[in-house]
Amino acid sequence: MENKQLIKGSLNVIILKLLSDHEKMYGYEITQHVKEMTKGEMQITEGALYPALHKLEADGLITSESQKVGGRVRKYYLLSEDGQKSVSSQLDELAGFLNNLSLLLNLKPSHQ
């Protein structure tokens, strides 16, 4: 499934939601979690992920902390207080958009 543009447009909300579900995550962990949850249908590249993480951090929605793990420094990302407030509204906004898109495209729910 070719969905790079769709992922790019919803990457911030994906990151915020994952961080709201987990106390903290590092970049590679985020990419692997998305890949596992979607059975490989969605894959986030490092080239897309890290600029999004840096922007979210610059916007004050996430923070980061470094920890030494196995002799290497690993950067973990966490939701900030503003990020915790924002994730709910962004999920509501995305749900509304998906509902309207479904109406416009006359999509019927799939039963798998």
Rank of each mutant, 00 (worst) to 15 (best):
S10A: 13
F97R: 01
Q43F: 09
S64E: 12
M37W: 06
I14T: 04
R74C: 00
A58I: 08
M42S: 08
V34K: 02
L91Q: 11
G70D: 15
I15Q: 00
F97A: 06
L78N: 02
K39Q: 14
Y26H: 15
K85N: 14
K24W: 03
L49T: 02
Y50L: 04
T38N: 04
Q90G: 05
V34Q: 02
S66W: 10
L53C: 10
N100R: 12
A48G: 03
G40Q: 04
K55T: 08
L19R: 03
H54I: 09
K108E: 15
G47F: 01
F97E: 06
S66F: 06
K35Q: 12
S110Y: 00
E57I: 01
L56P: 10
S86V: 00
M25N: 00
T38R: 04
Y28P: 07
T31A: 12
S10M: 12
H22G: 01
L103S: 14
M25L: 15
S66D: 14
Q43N: 06
L16F: 05
A58G: 10
D21W: 05
S89F: 12
L16S: 04
D59N: 10
Y76V: 11
A52V: 07
L49G: 02
Y28T: 15
I62D: 01
S20G: 09
A52C: 13
L78E: 01
V69I: 13
L104H: 06
E93V: 08
Q32R: 12
S86R: 03
S89W: 05
V69L: 07
H33Q: 12
L94A: 12
K17C: 08
K68H: 10
K39G: 14
E29G: 13
K35Y: 08
S80E: 03
G71R: 00
M42E: 08
E23M: 06
I15R: 02
L16Q: 00
L53R: 00
S86C: 09
E23N: 08
S89K: 11
K35H: 13
V34H: 00
S88K: 14
G40M: 03
I15K: 03
K24M: 13
Q112F: 15
V34T: 03
I44C: 04
E29R: 09
V69T: 02
E29K: 11
V87C: 09
D59W: 04
M37A: 15
L61F: 12
K55G: 04
Y26T: 03
V69E: 13
Q32M: 14
H33M: 15
H22Q: 07
G27T: 06
E46R: 08
S66M: 13
D59T: 04
G60Y: 09
S66V: 15
A48L: 11
A48M: 10
L98R: 04
L104C: 09
G27C: 03
G96H: 08
